[in-house]
Write a protein that binds this DNA or RNA. Sequence first.
DNA 1: CGACACGTTGAGGGCACTCAATAGTGGTGG
DNA 2: CCACCACTATTGAGTGCCCTCAACGTGTCG
Lengths: 256, 256
Amino acid sequence: MFTESAMSRQTRVVADFAPPCHQPSTIEELFSKQMAERFEAGSAVFWEGDTASHVFAVTEGVLRIFKIMSDGRRVITGFVYPGDLLGVSLRDSYLYTAEAVTTARVRRFGRTRFQDEINHSPDLRPQLFAQLCDEMAAAQDQMVLLARKSAEERVSSFLLVIMRRLRREQQEQPVIELPMTRQDMADYLGLTIETVSRTMTKLTTCGVIAPTGRHAVVIKRLAKLLVLAGEGDVGYASDETNSIRRAVWPEYYTAQ
Amino acid sequence: MFTESAMSRQTRVVADFAPPCHQPSTIEELFSKQMAERFEAGSAVFWEGDTASHVFAVTEGVLRIFKIMSDGRRVITGFVYPGDLLGVSLRDSYLYTAEAVTTARVRRFGRTRFQDEINHSPDLRPQLFAQLCDEMAAAQDQMVLLARKSAEERVSSFLLVIMRRLRREQQEQPVIELPMTRQDMADYLGLTIETVSRTMTKLTTCGVIAPTGRHAVVIKRLAKLLVLAGEGDVGYASDETNSIRRAVWPEYYTAQ
DNA sequence: CGACACGTTGAGGGCACTCAATAGTGGTGG
DNA sequence: CCACCACTATTGAGTGCCCTCAACGTGTCG
């Protein structure tokens, strides 16, 4: 895979009946021509161990990817949002099960076809590589969370991660949507449903967050949440670090 | 990055004074021409947050890669063995610190140069991709371990992972070398040094392992270790599953 | 309104952590 | 050769955080 030549590119374009002058320059664009499929909440896109025949791009909704131990213990290794790819990191079979949390829309490519596309496009390769790097960075952060953070730190970190994700995708959002159940959060954070619930209550009582219905919260005190998440290096932070943080969250970052 | 043209390849080859007829066909071969550098136990190859200027290949020794929280909590996200790459998953700066556990030898490429090489070689790209997939699969397994496994399961799983790794690299090895300290193991498994020590003692008492000095053990009962690791789906296993397992560890797998 | 799923709250227990003391291990020098 | 030290590992006692088990709210559907 990843081979490239003027010859093979020509071949591909002809096979697709696409105008040779209009190559997709982003992965999003590449998938946009594929048929959109709809998955209802709770339905699976693929299962761990299935032969990995397709690569998916999420255009709408949220999915969970998870592994299950032989005795039923479940670990959610990530939540997948619009713009994310699904099923890329694989050998011959999928590493995890992917299931819709909300009604979701995805587009798919045959694995071989996707690899050809990536191979032939010098524009797409770095995008795919960047996606994989982001995925790896997220996995590393998750390992830190699971290995060493307290329940309070885990829940706080989770809220921050979701916040940043929504910010990237959508507009300014003081309200954070949490479409997943408490059980999903627990299986993602390595906690029980009861501990997640208790911790959310505690954060509410402290005035850090304010619930808006069951599946959304408003962050009232971001600075405090950062500290609780274990990202608050306030005691050690240089002026430079703090100025960077202010640049990242200008409207939120106020000492409280 | 990953951009490609006949022109740039020409430039590269001339700059290296390498024979155009002898392209490296494996990543190992690619690195073999680079100077080997020696790192003493405890010394760092690079630090988390450093500008990611190089990609490394380990040829000898073992390294640990870790992240540290602002208050000093350390999480080892992986151990790196000969044949592994180091510093590939990155954006602009390294995701983690890499430190030699034992005296280690590594070879390096400038990041840009490495990307060029990968870009220009249809042989190397799938190898790199496969490496990244393995890394991702390992990260997922680690998340399962950290999120849901007991101390006993964690230590047992760790021993199995190391065993498989040594088996891949070296010859048949009943003795498993554990060059890292108990603190390293603890920071990898999300436990304390005391819990690791107690669990190792317990496994020894049970007759599952037998210590050979401080930094090596012999696995006496693999079947039991598999069960303790949470990989023992014995109660559920189909004949097919078991036959697969026997094929993987033919000389070890005996019901005990 | 009842059934059901999901979420919250409470009481008690256990696994792993903390703190502390002891025992190996390896290196150095008298 | 052995005393001495620094470092690492083991073992023990007690605590605490989170889990387990259980009951009670809450929201949604028929």
